[in-house]
C-alpha cells in the first residue's frame, strides 16, 4: 500500500513536469506562429528614417548657455515628455520631494564636484549648467536593475521600459549623477499640459531622460537640441568620424561629470 502510494506520487510528479514542459513548448510554438501572424512575414522593423549603427552622444557648450536658452530647452523636454510639475508635498518643505526632472540646471560646483578650482573665471562659475542623464557607456543603473526594466539599446541609449519597472529604486541608488526620478504619486494629478503623442507614467515607476529615443528612431534630433538656437547643444553619432559632434570633440577640450566612477558618460561639456 505504502509503496503504491509512493509510486503514484512519483508518477504524478513526472506527469506534472511532462505536462508543464509540453505546455511551455506549445506556448513557445504558439508565440512563434503568433509573431509571424501579428508582425507579418517580414516582421517588425525600425522606421526607415532611423540611422543604423549609431552611438549617440551630446556636447554641452556651457559658454553659450544662458538662463533663457536653458529654460527653453528644459521646457521643450518637459512638454514633449509629459513631465509633471508636482507642488511641494508639504508647506514649508525645503525641497520638492516629489519632483520629476529629466534635464535641469545646476550650479557648476554641484554638477562638477571636486573640479571647483579657486579663482575660476566668473563666467564659468556664475552660469548654471545643464545636467541630464549621462547615457553612460557602462551604466550602473542597468547593472543593478532586477527586471531589465532599464536597459541599454544598441545605439547606447539607456532607457526605461515603464511597463516592467517594479519601483524598487535600486537604480536611483546606483546612479552616480542623481539623474533618476521616481513617481511618488500619480503624474496625472499634477497640472500638466498633455502631449498626446507621448505617454505619461503611472505612480510607482522610475523615469529619466531617454535622449529622446522616440525622436532619434524617426531620424529627428532630441527636443532639447531642437529647442536651442545658438549651438548650445551638439548632438550626434560618435561612430561617424565626419559627424559634427566628432568635429566639436576634436577641436575643443571637454570634460565629463565624475569620470573617476568609470561609467563613461556620453554627455561632454565644454567649459
Amino acid at each position: 500500500m505504502k509503496s503504491d502510494r509512493r509510486h503514484f506520487l512519483k508518477a504524478a510528479g513526472v506527469a506534472t513536469i511532462g505536462v508543464a514542459a509540453g505546455a511551455t513548448a506549445a506556448e513557445a510554438n504558439l508565440l512563434d506562429s503568433a509573431k509571424e501572424l501579428l508582425l507579418g512575414p517580414k516582421g517588425a522593423a525600425p522606421y526607415p528614417e532611423a540611422k543604423k549603427g549609431a552611438r549617440w552622444a551630446m556636447v554641452v557648450d556651457t559658454r553659450k548657455l544662458t538662463a533663457e536658452s536653458m529654460e527653453k530647452m528644459i521646457h521643450a523636454c518637459n512638454h514633449a515628455h509629459n513631465i509633471p510639475l508636482h507642488p511641494l508635498r508639504k508647506k514649508g518643505d525645503k525641497y520638492n520631494k516629489d519632483e520629476i526632472k529629466w534635464i535641469w540646471e545646476e550650479e557648476f560646483e554641484n554638477a562638477f564636484p571636486g573640479q571647483m578650482n579657486e579663482h575660476l573665471p566668473p563666467k564659468v562659475t556664475q552660469n548654471e549648467v545643464l545636467v541630464l542623464c549621462n547615457q553612460c557607456e557602462n551604466p550602473a543603473c542597468v547593472r543593478v536593475c532586477p527586471t531589465k526594466a532599464t536597459f541599454q539599446r544598441e545605439d547606447g541609449i539607456v532607457i526605461m521600459d515603464f511597463h516592467r519597472c517594479i519601483g524598487c529604486r535600486f537604480c536611483m541608488a546606483a546612479c552616480p549623477y542623481g539623474s533618476r526620478s521616481f513617481n511618488f504619486k500619480d503624474p496625472r494629478i499634477a497640472s500638466l499640459e498633455i502631449n498626446p503623442e507621448f505617454p505619461t507614467r503611472m505612480k510607482g515607476v522610475v523615469e529619466k531622460c531617454n535622449f529622446c529615443a522616440e525622436q532619434l528612431d524617426k531620424g529627428l534630433q532630441p527636443h532639447c537640441v531642437e529647442a536651442c538656437k545658438n549651438g548650445e547643444l551638439v548632438f550626434g553619432d560618435m561612430n561617424d568620424p565626419e559627424s559634427e559632434i566628432r568635429k566639436v570633440l576634436r577641436n575643443n577640450y571637454t570634460i565629463r561629470r565624475k569620470p573617476e566612477v568609470g561609467t563613461q558618460p556620453q554627455v561632454y561639456y565644454i567649459v
Partner: peptide
C-alpha cells in the same frame, strides 16, 4: 517599499543575475 508591488513577480519572470537584488 516597492512602487509597483503588483509587478513583484517580474523579478522571477525576467530573472537578472547581474542584479544583486535578484
Amino acid at each position: 517599499d516597492l512602487g509597483q508591488p503588483m509587478r513583484m513577480m517580474n523579478m522571477i519572470i525576467f530573472p537578472t543575475p547581474n542584479s544583486v537584488l535578484f
